[in-house]
Design a protein around this nucleic acid. Structure first.
Lengths: 234, 234
DNA sequence: AATCGTCAAGAGCAGTGCTCTCGTTTGATG
DNA sequence: CATCAAACGAGAGCACTGCTCTTGACGATT
């Protein structure tokens, strides 16, 4: 019975995948605003109304693409992290940064969908917050490993404002590592700097400013890694 | 004749301004994708086709809004910078950062239009690059002032990759200040970090992560200012 | 006063997301 | 095996979009 039931559900899964595939192709070429349900249906030889059997709305289709995107960047980050010895914390961090940039440069529209302006009128459902944290888990693991190994260069313990303590305490519990305030703050700062740099490149702010994009990125990430506390010359 | 001619051009200028005003209001509430020429025309009591006498296309209207936005953030930054004594470099820098964030938080959709995902199919014309550099000039001036005054804490002169020299040389000529490589690189890094932090807040990446947004921002900018070389305790 | 350029309005085209209905197919149940 | 409900695809249609083209009126210039 599961076989026969699977027969229907299998073609459904296949069609669903074909829709997201075509949608992703269209997203890559036209951008999020150019994603048209009718165009996808046309390419599939279906009536436009039939698409709604698989995705209740255009936003639902966008959500699927967003989840796929988060998983793609998360997987790229995980792979880059796993390729290096566990105690090479600085190397892992730099590799992870490069993985984010590489993915963003090769998938600019998908990157924009994830980290650019939120699509107006679109409210990210809860299904996305899981995959959205996949890459984050890698970052915190690297910092936590370095801190546990004692290789993280200490920062001047500049006092953190008292009203940030609640946020930092919650962060400590969610990441499950007892990192000092300054380490968390610096990690957050470098995290934002990483995506700020990538966004500037992908969104065109570096046009006519920086030509050697890869070299600049690597160099900046090195400077930021030292700032985060990863000692140079790993 | 110039009076009568002006009569015509004056009402034209007034109508143009009314269009951009309504468009900006619509942009603020609905976002860039929700900006509808027909809706603007409806609110003005005009036929939709009449709008095209004033803006050749929707993209043209968007361009006008983008230029206005760059000028708005540029003006906010200039005002924040001018409010402090010229030799308080760190204070000026922090004030400028706060001005950017304040403007972004109060005008999230306009910020998204400027610094978020580029509108698909929209190619920014050359008219925008002038206003787009208005805030940048302020950042550069602050760093240059601090460097000239000798108050910029020196960084370890970590060697900059050779293939970045061309970019740095061009940057030196465009800003018209002979700053060392490391200073330029750190300034660029902090620049990207500033907008990365603001984008993370405006675009929702800090949701469920940071509650005390203003306190976190100020603290991070302080850390980054020290990183850039502005000595603490100004 | 006649003219000629500027302007607003209307109709219309091609496209969009989405809904509803109407047959058909499919798969589990009596 | 026959039946019946759920799932499905197609089509028409609604309200909306950006944009074009034509028509007619108004106003400044010769």
């Amino acid at each position: 019975m599961s076989a026969s039931r699977t027969a229907r559900e299998r073609v459904r899964a296949e069609l669903t995948e074909e829709i997201t595939g075509l949608a992703r192709r269209q997203l890559a070429t036209e951008g999020a605003a150019g994603l048209s349900l009718r165009a996808v249906a046309r390419e599939m030889g279906m009536a436009s109304s039939a698409i709604y059997r698989y995705f209740a709305s255009r936003d639902d289709l966008l959500t699927a693409l967003i989840i796929d995107g988060y998983n793609a960047v998360g997987e790229a980050v995980e792979r880059a992290d796993a390729a290096l010895p566990r105690d090479d914390h600085r190397g892992r961090w730099l590799a992870v940064c490069r993985a984010v940039r590489d993915w963003a440069v090769t998938h600019p529209h998908e990157y924009a969908l994830l980290y650019g302006s939120p699509v107006p009128g679109y409210q990210a459902p809860e299904d996305t917050i899981g995959p959205a944290l996949r890459d984050t888990a890698v970052y915190v693991r690297i910092v936590a490993d370095a801190h546990a190994a004692g290789t993280l260069r200490p920062h001047e313990p500049g006092p953190v404002p008292a009203n940030l303590e609640a946020d930092l305490a919650r962060a400590r519990t969610t990441i499950g590592a007892d990192l000092p305030d300054e380490v968390i703050v610096r990690a957050l700062t470098v995290w934002a700097a990483l995506f700020g740099t990538v966004s500037f490149e992908v969104f065109g702010q570096f046009d006519n400013v920086i030509g050697e994009r890869a070299a600049y990125f690597d160099h900046t990430m090195g400077v930021l890694a030292s700032f985060a506390g990863f000692p140079a010359e790993g």
